[in-house]
Design a protein around this nucleic acid. Structure first.
Lengths: 208, 208
DNA sequence: GAGACTCTGTGACGGAGGTCACAGACAGGA
DNA sequence: TCCTGTCTGTGACCTCCGTCACAGAGTCTC
C-alpha cells in the first residue's frame, strides 16, 4: 500500500489494507457519465481530466486532478448516491490509489484528516467551476485561450498540446483554436510547432 | 433566536446565543464580490440569488438559496479565507439567521450536524454549477429559456418575472428573451403578460 | 523512399445571438 | 387626466464562432 498521502496515512490500519493502486495509460477512461462509483481514487502521479461532452460531440474540461488530489465528484457521488455526472480520463500516465467505496463512506465520518481533505478539495473545485461558468458565459474564445495558455504553460512558457486537445479543454472546435493561435503568432505572442505552443510574450497574452 | 433549523438547533447553547436574525427587502445586496464574509447566513424564509456579472454588465445566476439552506460560497470562504467570488442578493423578502464567522469556524469541526449540512449543500451546489456550465457551453438560449421556465414555474405554470429578470438569470440580454418568448407564444407554449409568463403547453416546452 | 496517419492552415458560409434604436403598451402617482 | 417610469415588441445590423471542405506539412513504419 504505497499510499504516502496524508489523508490515506491517517486511515485506521484495517482501512489502509483495503487500498489498491492502479496504473493507467494516457486516454484511459476512469469514470463514465452515469457510472456508479465503486472507489475513491487518489492520484499519486500524473494528471487526470474531468470533462463533459455536448450532444454534437464537443468536449469541455471541468477541471484537472493533480497528484495528491482525488476526484471530488466521485466523493460527492459516493456520499450522495448520485451517478457520476461527467467523464474522467487519464491525461498522462497516472498512478492512483483506490479506496473502496464502502470503506470511504464508513471512515469519512470518523477520520478528520480524510474529511478535511475532501471538504477542502470540494470547496476549491466549486470555486474553480464558478470561474469556468463565468469564462464560458462572458469571455470570447480568444480571451479564454490566451488565459489558458498563460495558466498552463510550464516555466519556460512551453505547453505540449495539440490544437485538438486545446479545443477540448475550452469546449470549442479545432479550427477555431488553429485560427486563434495563428493570430497570436502573428502578434509575436507565441511560437507554434506541431503538438506544442511556446509563449514568447507573456505580458501581451495576459493583457489581452 | 428563532433558529428552527436542524443544523442550528444542534449547536451548543453558547453558540446558539450568538445567532441573530435579519430581514431583507427584495433586491438588498447580501454579499459583494471581493467581500470578506463576517457571518454564515441560513435562509429561514424567502429566497436569495447568487450571481456573477460580466464586464459589460450582464448577469448570470449561479444558483438560488431556498429556506433551510445557507450560502455555501460563504461557508467555503470562511473556511478557506478567500474573498467572496460573486454577488448575492435577496430575490424576495428574506429572513435569515446569521451565525458569526468565528463561531462557525470554531463549531464546524465539532458539530457533526453542521458539518453534514454544509457538506451536503456544497456537494449539491457543485453538481448544480456543473450542470450550469454544461448548459451555458452547449445549449442555445431558447433551449435554456424553455428549460428555465419549466423548472421555475409554480404548479399552475405561472412565473412572475420580467424579461429583464429572465435575461439576468440566463446571462443573456432582455431583447433576446423577449424575442424568444414571443416565438414560444406563437407556438402556443406560453401566454405572456406584463411581468409574468404562464405555461400553456408544458410538454411542448419540455420536448424542445 | 512510399504510404498512411496525424496535425495544422485556411477560405467560405451560415446561424445564433448581442447591440442599437425606437415605438408603443401599461401602471402608478400627482 | 397627464406625466413619468417601467416593461415589452421588433427591425436592422454585425460579430463571433461552429461547420464543411480541402490542402499541405510532419512523423512514423515498413
Amino acid at each position: 500500500m504505497p499510499s504516502s498521502l496524508p489523508p490515506l496515512d491517517a486511515l485506521p490500519d484495517e482501512a489502509r489494507q483495503s487500498v489498491r493502486t492502479v496504473s493507467l495509460d494516457p486516454g484511459a477512461l476512469i469514470c463514465l457519465e452515469g457510472d456508479r462509483c465503486v472507489s475513491l481514487p487518489f492520484v499519486l502521479s500524473g494528471e487526470a481530466r474531468v470533462y463533459r461532452t455536448s450532444a454534437s460531440g464537443r468536449g469541455l474540461t471541468l477541471y484537472r486532478i493533480a497528484p495528491g488530489e482525488s476526484c471530488i465528484l466521485t466523493a460527492s457521488c459516493l456520499l450522495s448516491g448520485h451517478p457520476f455526472p461527467a467523464f474522467a480520463e487519464a491525461a498522462t500516465p497516472v498512478e492512483a490509489a483506490l479506496l473502496p467505496a464502502d470503506v470511504f463512506v464508513r471512515t469519512f465520518a470518523e477520520v478528520p484528516a480524510l474529511r478535511e481533505h475532501v471538504f477542502g478539495l470540494l470547496a476549491r473545485r466549486l470555486g474553480a467551476v464558478i470561474e469556468l461558468v463565468d469564462a464560458v458565459a462572458f469571455l470570447r474564445v480568444d480571451e479564454r485561450l490566451a488565459r489558458y495558455l498563460a495558466e498552463n504553460a510550464d516555466t519556460n512558457g512551453h505547453l505540449a498540446r495539440t490544437h485538438e486537445a486545446l479545443a477540448e479543454a475550452l469546449g470549442t472546435s479545432r479550427e477555431v483554436v488553429s485560427r486563434t493561435l495563428k493570430e497570436f503568432e502573428r502578434r509575436g505572442w507565441v511560437a507554434l510547432a506541431r503538438g506544442s505552443v511556446t509563449i514568447q510574450d507573456a505580458s501581451g497574452l495576459r493583457n489581452y
